[in-house]
């Protein structure tokens, strides 16, 4: 294992994060605060509580997930796409590093960034609502796993994308709708039966549900199903990345 290379990529990516601190940290905090104001205050005044939890507190796990998912995908996608775009990827390809090390460096940095943002949002939400975390360790585990698995997805998007437009396409048109429709701001028990069934095909539902369970013990689907879903998703992403590096798809000529 070329640990120095992994650390070099990790540090390089983190340096970009801290260079663009306004975009990286302040922007998600501001938008999350706005969600609290709009959803928590405006809608919360009409929906007092969901399954015994105040609406404001109920949406916290969903809000954290919304940001963590999009940030993981965007950070990792940009991280690998940018060297491809400006042509510095030659250095990664000609260095004595394996694809595993490249993935650990890029995905590790992207996951760390979104984990930091997720924790900042969580801390921010303490200012707005009363939050209790019933299962802290599973909560952290869910958060970390989500950061990693969606950073892996972002890494794939970054490699496959041929333009900045394509880079934005999946986060905007797939991830965000899935998060909004995945029970971030409601319990699927509040939906008509048909939509409840349709929601079960949304993979993000399993993440939000599992994450919310770690806070309040509330879940739309069994916790085991959530764990299985995120594990399966991670394995799937790893498989695709392994294939990309084996074939050099969109990386090597």
């Amino acid at each position: 294992m070329n640990l120095y290379a992994v650390m070099a990529i990790f540090r390089f990516e983190m340096a970009r994060f801290f260079r663009t601190v306004w975009q990286s940290i302040v922007s998600p905090v501001v938008s999350t605060s706005l969600y609290f104001v709009v959803f928590g205050t405006a809608i919360g005044s009409r929906i007092q509580e969901v399954e015994g939890t105040s609406y404001g507190a109920f949406i916290v796990p969903g809000l954290v997930m919304l940001t963590v998912l999009t940030q993981s995908v965007q950070n990792a996608a940009f991280g690998i796409y940018f060297p491809k775009f400006i042509g510095t990827i030659y250095e990664h390809l000609s260095a004595p590093i394996s694809f595993v090390e490249i993935v650990i460096g890029f995905v590790g940095a992207a996951a760390t960034k979104s984990l930091i943002i997720g924790l900042i949002i969580l801390a921010t939400s303490f200012f707005f609502v009363d939050i209790r975390i019933q299962h802290p360790l599973p909560m952290i585990a869910f958060l970390v796993l989500t950061c990693i698995s969606f950073a892996l997805l972002g890494f794939i998007i970054g490699i496959v994308s041929k333009s900045f437009e394509q880079l934005q396409l999946v986060p905007l048109l797939v991830i965000t709708p899935l998060v909004f429709l995945g029970g971030s701001f409601y319990s699927i028990s509040m939906l008509p039966p048909v939509w409840q069934t349709i929601s079960l095909f949304n993979p993000v539902l399993y993440l939000v549900s599992g994450f919310r369970w770690s806070f309040y013990g509330l879940s739309d689907v069994p916790i085991a199903a959530s764990l299985a879903a995120i594990t399966l998703f991670t394995i799937l992403c790893l498989g695709v990345i392994w294939w990309i590096f084996r074939t050099g798809y969109r990386l090597k000529t």
Binding site: Y4, A5, A8, I9, F12, A15, E91, H92, A95, I97
Partner: peptide
């Protein structure tokens, strides 16, 4: 930093 990065990349 960019030159240091290259050194790290090469282990």
């Amino acid at each position: 930093n960019t030159v240091s990065f290259s050194r790290g990349l090469f282990g």
